[in-house]
Design a protein around this nucleic acid. Structure first.
Lengths: 99, 99
DNA sequence: AAAATACATTGACGGACATCTATGCGTGTG
DNA sequence: CACACGCATAGATGTCCGTCAATGTATTTT
């Protein structure tokens, strides 16, 4: 994962609502209407956030009838976790910054 | 680390220049003037970015004479890595999304 | 002391962003 | 078929963000 993609992901996660959405999806696939219940935003605003999360590759959308089911994309999440995990405050010493 | 702080960190890392700064600091402490050489931005703009990175706790500044030395904050970085690492696409199964 | 260096602050500006209301579109349900 | 439901899109609006030029403040060098 290059810096550009990582910055895009960070930007997507930089909104408190979107970060909370990702945390909810971390518990498993959910449809939009259930996500909406967890927030105090309008439906178009949620749709806007889901679009951003999907466009950066972090979230997958699956249409089923009139429902859209959202889930975290495994590959993107793994790549992002690796990218963040590679950061180090000490040049990679053991026992430092969670390594 | 709560969602608010994590979102702040993500927001700080959401700018390509700031993400690159963090990557440079991941290689060890650096002063502002050396960081500036790596970018095509003006000095006030770099100063602005460093302020944001410091205010969210991700970067520490150490003044020494006329130089400011910047480095990644170990505790904040560790907490952030743990926060991101806790995200899961499958509810925490082994071998999934980098776990 | 004068000049140069490193950095922060201020003020301004254009673009991006989060949010809303209104509306459209497809899918079930009566 | 008509209506309700889930979701996306369009357009508008106020706010935040990244950037710059100009300037200020220490500190070091000459």
């Amino acid at each position: 994962m290059n810096e550009i993609d990582a910055a895009l992901l960070c930007r997507a996660l930089g909104d408190p609502n979107r970060l909370k959405i990702v945390q909810l999806l971390s518990g498993g696939e959910k449809c939009g209407c259930r996500l909406l219940e967890a927030f105090e935003i309008t439906q178009p605003t949620l749709s806007h956030h889901m679009r951003i999360l999907c466009e950066c590759g972090l979230v997958d959308a699956r249409k089923e009838g009139k429902w859209s089911h959202y889930s975290l994309n495994c590959a993107t999440l793994a790549a992002f976790k690796a990218f963040i995990g590679d950061l180090s405050c000490c040049g990679g010493e053991r026992g430092c910054c969670g390594e």
